[in-house]
């Protein structure tokens, strides 16, 4: 049974004119336990000269010019925009049937997609953004600049964790060929800062350099917010789904194909 309070007491509580500290605590506890009392108290809030003064006092902050460093934080990350429509348009062949009856493994495409789901992009682009450096590639031909990453993509089998020194730890999760016959590898990077990124790279051009086709950061904890699970970056999953045109390459096949790139 919660104690009862008068409208006068509640109004004073809401207006900040109640001086009895014990009564303030009692009303707080009662309201916490009784939603109806909360509503009643809220309805008693009077005109608020103090609130108006506080709003006026801080209004200049709203009107002040925004420092450039804040808007720069939100600069479009053009390199991160993956044109999925173009990717899909370029896909000439229908997707293969789910490969769950090959006897090779019980993996099905959705599982592969989920594994593939989280990758690299943020490490590459985020580093560029945060450091303000202009040395990272951008635009359509986003070529891997990291020797460690290139080495991993050139030779590491799927599932093998690879130390990428400053970038963190990398792992290729899927290898396949696209409709153009290019070798493509989906991989993830577990950044040293705890951010996991997903990416898809295909060996393109005459020199068969690894080019980033898609990337995205995995959902990461923000403050007290919880992760929504270990899902890979949707942009990468979608790109893999759009481009994959072979069975996943694993084991000796994968190594052999890597040798041919």
């Amino acid at each position: 049974m919660s104690p009862s309070f008068t409208d006068g007491q509640l109004a004073s509580f809401m207006d900040g004119t109640l001086e009895d500290e014990a009564l303030i605590d009692a009303i707080e506890a009662a309201i916490n336990a009784d939603p109806a009392l909360a509503e009643r108290a809220e309805a008693l809030v009077a005109g608020e000269p103090i609130a108006a003064m506080v709003r006026d006092a801080f209004a200049p902050v709203l009107d002040a010019p925004v420092p450039e460093r804040l808007t720069t934080t939100l600069a479009p990350r053009e390199a991160e925009v993956v044109d999925l429509a173009a990717v899909r348009a370029a896909k000439s062949a229908a997707l293969p049937k789910p490969a769950n009856d090959t006897g090779r493994s019980s993996w099905r495409w959705p599982q592969l997609g989920a594994m593939a789901a989280s990758l690299v992009v943020g490490v590459l682009i985020g580093g560029r953004l945060l450091n303000g450096g202009a040395d990272a590639p951008a635009g359509d031909d986003l070529v891997l600049a990291s020797a460690d990453l290139t080495a991993m993509l050139d030779s590491a089998p799927s599932g093998q964790k690879t130390d990428l020194s400053a970038l963190g730890e990398g792992e290729v999760v899927l290898t396949f060929r696209n409709a153009d016959g290019q070798l493509c590898r989906q991989f993830l990077i577990q950044g040293t800062g705890g951010v996991t990124s997903d990416a898809l790279a295909c060996a393109g051009g005459s020199d068969k350099r690894w080019q980033i086709e898609a990337y995205g950061r995995r959902a990461a904890p923000v403050g007290k917010m919880k992760l929504a699970g270990g899902d890979a970056a949707p942009a990468v999953v979608a790109a893999v789904d759009a481009m994959i045109n072979s069975d996943p390459l694993v084991g000796p096949d994968e190594i052999a194909e890597l040798g041919k790139k």
């Binding site: 809401m14 900040g16 009303i27 309201i31 939603p35 009392l37």
Partner: peptide, 20 residues
């Protein structure tokens, strides 16, 4: 809890009024 928000604001208003 909502009552705690209310009491904090109540105390804040009281302190602001005193100071002003």
């Amino acid at each position: 809890p909502i009552g705690t928000v209310m009491s904090r604001l109540s105390r804040a208003k009281a302190a602001l009024a005193r100071r002003m």
